[in-house]
């Protein structure tokens, strides 16, 4: 399955780094983050989704991503930027955020990341999904 590509990415590199850091934390297992290639695939797909959404949706999603990134150090109680925070600290911070009134922007980011992540055949297989009709049939 090839990821969508865009010559002129709509996501700034800073946004991509934040999304990668969030995806690593959300989909981490006890063994660590998911394969790097899968995270890259998710981010490329995200780029394509945003390319097909309107300016307001793009702005909203970027705003949500930055809001989460800004909130993570607060919830982690450490003045360290999201991208440089340890995986464990990111997971703890995001978990606290999800249980707080500040959860809505995290839901927006997590929802879109989840929709894309579990479309990856390996991720779908890992959670026992075998609904072929919900995949693409080229």
């Amino acid at each position: 399955m090839s990821a969508a590509t865009h010559d002129d990415s709509l996501q700034r590199p800073r946004t991509v780094r934040k999304l990668q850091a969030l995806a690593e934390a959300i989909f981490a297992t006890e063994a660590g983050p998911p394969p790097e290639s899968r995270i890259r695939w998710v981010c490329a797909e995200m780029d394509d989704v945003l390319a097909h959404s309107g300016p307001s949706a793009r702005t909203l999603f970027r705003a949500a991503t930055y809001a989460v990134a800004a909130a993570v150090p607060v919830f982690a109680r450490r003045p360290v930027p999201l991208e440089r925070m340890s995986l464990k600290a990111r997971i703890v911070a995001l978990d606290r955020m999800e249980r707080s009134l500040a959860a809505p922007p995290l839901l927006a980011v997590k929802a879109l990341l989840c929709i894309l992540y579990y479309e990856h055949p390996d991720a779908a297989r890992e959670v026992g999904f075998d609904g072929g009709c919900l995949g693409a049939r080229t």
């Binding site: 934390a25 999800e98 839901l107």
Partner: peptide, 16 residues
């Protein structure tokens, strides 16, 4: 779809 299911499941990382 599974991704929408997962999006609404609570938890981050191993719990998710």
């Amino acid at each position: 779809p599974p991704g929408v299911f997962a999006a609404t499941l609570p938890g981050i990382g191993p719990a998710h």
